[in-house]
Write a protein that binds this DNA or RNA. Structure first.
Lengths: 236, 236
DNA sequence: GGCCCGTTTTGCGCTATCGCAAACTATCGG
DNA sequence: CCGATAGTTTGCGATAGCGCAAAACGGGCC
């Protein structure tokens, strides 16, 4: 049913070690769907009926507290899976997924997962690998929130976004999907006000160029320096 | 070689869906070892030559920054695995593991993992599950550090420790391994001073009873209330 | 072309929490 | 039994970052 080009997805880590003909079979179980910019893909707490592979676009996964505050768990880039609640044995999605750009995804029913990993054990191994990597990143993030100041955390966050979804311009590297100050605040455990102040400062120093939901790193190297700078003071 | 009683480990989540005779085979690949209190099991950055299953005792996994600050990634309770670097495709341990109590572990060589999961796919599925669960917990922790104040975070941390490794006393619930103010600070992203102040306060209110590396929750219910309390003020 | 709405910027006072320093106190080894 | 050591408590000043409020700014829509 899915008229997805096999060759496009064959190289993804998820399918490493899977034979081409098997890949066909796996893909046959999926359907594809398009989500317009700013549409919800699934909501935190909803039944985890499907899991997803992002083909085009960008998806924001965010977790909300009972009192309404949000954090951005991650931005999903093309080629990555999301909504893997079932792999971890959860009946409900632990976060909300929203397309931040027009996005195209492959969708498998959660119910297909047990059969898939039984027939294709490499899937489980590959998924374990990516989930494990995310766990590590998550720990790194905890380490940063716990030990660094806001400016450094913002620097790290932007550098990561640039690496994951940066678009090379001659003026610098642009994060190639819409992202607000608020979003960055939710990635770094601070407020949009503080992020705004920081970016304003950086803009004056020529480190970044930014506007409405748009950020260009003009001097990535100096931002790296900022990110690694130890707490103590600047020039005496 | 391992003279471990099969029945003791058969019920662990890791071995769910594994036939008893297979379990024998798996265990034959492991050796067991004893680590005295405060001895290191592996160091962050070292070659990930083994992975572990904790049988008795308690292990602290901590991550260190280049500048020496630490955070506690988690406390490992009996029956849990740790040091799974290979499952996530890492050649080196991303954290340091230390026995906080005299501990007994099963040790498999990392090199055995690929073969094990090939022969026993349930192992991969089970591990995926536990790693996924840890990922979720990790996200919850980020959410807490980002949105709650220190007192609430400490409350949550203690409640979790109590649930995971609490020993029922008639005076309350005791966390049944040695844990310092510093440790709790490293779990909650604060300083030992702040933790000390908070616990002192709680002690006066009869919420806890604590001493040197020892904490008893005397009134878990009221601590739950504290943990969930929204930021704003107390009684007017 | 003008209006409306979501985003961003910025000022300002406030405070939770840190950081340092110093005193105190269990616990363990001898 | 006593001293050394690691952990804990507490005071006090400093401050990074928050929270509120208001203004400026785009950009798209009609």
């Amino acid at each position: 049913m899915a008229k997805v080009d096999t060759s496009l997805v064959a190289r993804l880590p998820l399918f490493g070690g899977v034979k081409p003909e098997d890949l066909d079979e796996i893909l046959r179980e999926a359907r594809s769907a398009r989500y317009p910019k700013n549409s919800a893909i699934f909501e935190q707490g909803a039944d985890a009926q499907s899991f997803f592979l992002l083909l085009h676009g960008h998806v924001r996964a965010a977790k909300t507290t009972p009192t309404g505050e949000q954090i951005v768990v991650r931005y999903v880039a093309p080629g990555e899976t999301f909504g893997l609640a079932m792999a971890i044995g959860a009946a409900h999605y632990p976060a909300t997924a929203m397309a931040v750009d027009d996005s195209v995804v492959l969708i498998w029913p959660t119910s297909a997962w047990p059969r898939l990993i039984e027939r294709f054990p490499a899937l489980a191994a590959n998924t374990l690998q990516t989930v494990g990597t995310r766990l590590q990143e998550s720990h790194t993030r905890i380490l940063e929130i716990s030990t660094q100041q806001v400016e450094q955390r913002v620097a790290h966050a932007l550098l990561r976004l640039a690496k994951q979804s940066g678009k090379k311009l001659d003026r610098g590297i642009e994060i190639d999907f819409p992202i607000s100050r608020q979003d960055i605040a939710q990635m770094t455990g601070t407020t949009l006000h503080t992020v705004s102040r920081i970016l304003s400062g950086w803009e004056q120093q020529g480190l970044v160029e930014s506007g409405r939901q748009r950020i260009i790193l003009r001097d990535p190297h100096r931002i790296v320096v900022l990110a690694e700078r130890t707490v103590d003071s600047g020039p005496a």
